[in-house]
Amino acid sequence: QWIQSKREDIVNQMTEACLNQSLDALLSRDLIMKEDYELVSTKPTRTSKVRQLLDTTDIQGEEFAKVIVQKLKDNKQMGLQ
């Protein structure tokens, strides 16, 4: 999976804004449970939030991952090649 192969780059480069947009999009599509949303959003640092989101992606699967990839594209953060 692309996200896993780029995990380190995503953790380093995903902005707080992109992270929040991803969470909002996942929530609005019922792809993330409120508990998982809280787990991510209550982490103390941006990098720990991104790591938690990516860990959740492993469990949730492809549809979940597609939303995150789309948000990275929207925010022009796909220089993660």
Score class of each variant (00 low, 15 high):
residue 2 W to R: 07
residue 2 W to C: 04
residue 2 W to T: 04
residue 2 W to L: 06
residue 3 I to D: 13
residue 3 I to R: 00
residue 3 I to C: 13
residue 3 I to T: 02
residue 3 I to L: 10
residue 4 Q to V: 02
residue 4 Q to R: 13
residue 5 S to W: 03
residue 5 S to Y: 02
residue 6 K to A: 08
residue 7 R to S: 07
residue 7 R to I: 01
residue 7 R to P: 00
residue 7 R to Y: 05
residue 7 R to Q: 06
residue 7 R to G: 04
residue 8 E to D: 14
residue 8 E to G: 09
residue 8 E to I: 02
residue 8 E to M: 09
residue 9 D to A: 09
residue 9 D to C: 08
residue 9 D to L: 11
residue 9 D to H: 08
residue 9 D to T: 08
residue 9 D to N: 02
residue 10 I to K: 03
residue 10 I to S: 03
residue 10 I to G: 02
residue 10 I to N: 06
residue 11 V to D: 00
residue 11 V to E: 07
residue 11 V to N: 04
residue 12 N to D: 12
residue 12 N to C: 13
residue 12 N to Y: 07
residue 12 N to G: 11
residue 12 N to T: 09
residue 13 Q to T: 11
residue 13 Q to S: 14
residue 13 Q to L: 05
residue 13 Q to F: 08
residue 15 T to E: 02
residue 16 E to L: 09
residue 16 E to Q: 05
residue 16 E to H: 03
residue 16 E to R: 01
residue 16 E to A: 04
residue 17 A to K: 13
residue 17 A to L: 11
residue 18 C to E: 14
residue 18 C to F: 07
residue 18 C to H: 02
residue 18 C to R: 04
residue 18 C to Q: 08
residue 18 C to Y: 01
residue 19 L to Q: 08
residue 19 L to E: 06
residue 20 N to P: 01
residue 20 N to R: 12
residue 21 Q to K: 08
residue 21 Q to P: 01
residue 21 Q to V: 07
residue 21 Q to D: 15
residue 22 S to F: 00
residue 22 S to W: 02
residue 22 S to N: 02
residue 22 S to E: 03
residue 24 D to W: 01
residue 24 D to K: 08
residue 24 D to S: 11
residue 24 D to H: 04
residue 24 D to E: 14
residue 24 D to T: 09
residue 25 A to Y: 02
residue 25 A to W: 00
residue 25 A to E: 15
residue 25 A to L: 09
residue 26 L to T: 03
residue 26 L to R: 07
residue 26 L to C: 03
residue 27 L to R: 11
residue 27 L to F: 08
residue 27 L to A: 10
residue 27 L to M: 15
residue 28 S to E: 14
residue 29 R to A: 13
residue 29 R to H: 08
residue 29 R to I: 01
residue 29 R to N: 13
residue 29 R to P: 07
residue 30 D to W: 00
residue 30 D to Y: 01
residue 30 D to R: 13
residue 30 D to K: 14
residue 30 D to F: 00
residue 30 D to G: 15
residue 31 L to S: 04
residue 31 L to V: 04
residue 31 L to R: 02
residue 31 L to H: 06
residue 31 L to F: 02
residue 31 L to Y: 04
residue 32 I to M: 11
residue 32 I to G: 02
residue 32 I to V: 08
residue 34 K to M: 09
residue 34 K to G: 08
residue 34 K to I: 08
residue 34 K to A: 12
residue 34 K to H: 05
residue 35 E to T: 12
residue 35 E to G: 10
residue 36 D to W: 00
residue 36 D to V: 04
residue 36 D to A: 09
residue 36 D to T: 10
residue 36 D to Y: 04
residue 37 Y to E: 07
residue 37 Y to R: 03
residue 37 Y to S: 05
residue 37 Y to N: 07
residue 38 E to V: 10
residue 38 E to L: 13
residue 38 E to T: 11
residue 38 E to W: 12
residue 38 E to R: 10
residue 38 E to P: 00
residue 39 L to V: 11
residue 39 L to W: 01
residue 39 L to A: 15
residue 39 L to I: 08
residue 39 L to K: 15
residue 40 V to P: 02
residue 40 V to H: 15
residue 40 V to Q: 00
residue 40 V to E: 03
residue 40 V to D: 02
residue 41 S to H: 12
residue 41 S to A: 14
residue 41 S to K: 15
residue 41 S to L: 14
residue 42 T to P: 01
residue 42 T to R: 14
residue 42 T to K: 10
residue 42 T to H: 11
residue 42 T to I: 10
residue 42 T to V: 07
residue 42 T to F: 10
residue 43 K to R: 14
residue 43 K to Q: 12
residue 44 P to Q: 11
residue 44 P to V: 10
residue 44 P to L: 09
residue 44 P to S: 09
residue 45 T to N: 13
residue 45 T to R: 01
residue 45 T to K: 00
residue 45 T to M: 12
residue 46 R to S: 05
residue 46 R to G: 04
residue 47 T to S: 13
residue 47 T to P: 10
residue 47 T to M: 07
residue 47 T to N: 09
residue 48 S to I: 00
residue 48 S to N: 01
residue 48 S to L: 13
residue 48 S to D: 14
residue 48 S to M: 12
residue 49 K to I: 04
residue 49 K to G: 07
residue 49 K to T: 02
residue 49 K to M: 12
residue 49 K to N: 02
residue 50 V to S: 07
residue 50 V to M: 02
residue 50 V to T: 05
residue 51 R to K: 13
residue 51 R to H: 05
residue 52 Q to T: 09
residue 52 Q to D: 05
residue 53 L to D: 02
residue 53 L to Y: 01
residue 53 L to T: 07
residue 53 L to G: 07
residue 53 L to I: 05
residue 54 L to R: 06
residue 54 L to M: 03
residue 54 L to A: 08
residue 55 D to N: 08
residue 55 D to P: 03
residue 55 D to H: 03
residue 55 D to E: 13
residue 55 D to G: 05
residue 56 T to G: 06
residue 56 T to L: 15
residue 56 T to Y: 14
residue 56 T to P: 04
residue 56 T to H: 10
residue 56 T to E: 08
residue 57 T to P: 13
residue 57 T to N: 03
residue 57 T to E: 12
residue 58 D to L: 13
residue 58 D to N: 12
residue 58 D to G: 15
residue 58 D to Y: 10
residue 60 Q to M: 11
residue 60 Q to V: 09
residue 60 Q to R: 13
residue 61 G to Q: 10
residue 61 G to S: 11
residue 61 G to C: 12
residue 61 G to F: 04
residue 62 E to S: 03
residue 62 E to L: 01
residue 62 E to D: 03
residue 62 E to H: 03
residue 63 E to N: 03
residue 63 E to M: 03
residue 64 F to M: 13
residue 64 F to R: 06
residue 65 A to M: 00
residue 65 A to N: 07
residue 65 A to Q: 02
residue 65 A to R: 03
residue 66 K to P: 06
residue 66 K to Y: 01
residue 66 K to N: 04
residue 66 K to M: 11
residue 67 V to G: 03
residue 68 I to M: 11
residue 68 I to G: 06
residue 68 I to K: 00
residue 68 I to L: 07
residue 69 V to N: 00
residue 69 V to F: 13
residue 70 Q to N: 01
residue 70 Q to V: 02
residue 70 Q to L: 02
residue 70 Q to G: 12
residue 70 Q to C: 03
residue 71 K to L: 09
residue 71 K to G: 09
residue 71 K to I: 12
residue 71 K to R: 04
residue 71 K to C: 13
residue 71 K to Y: 10
residue 72 L to T: 06
residue 72 L to H: 02
residue 72 L to M: 15
residue 73 K to M: 12
residue 73 K to S: 14
residue 73 K to E: 14
residue 74 D to N: 08
residue 74 D to C: 10
residue 75 N to V: 07
residue 75 N to K: 05
residue 75 N to T: 10
residue 75 N to W: 10
residue 76 K to Y: 09
residue 76 K to D: 11
residue 78 M to I: 08
residue 81 Q to H: 07
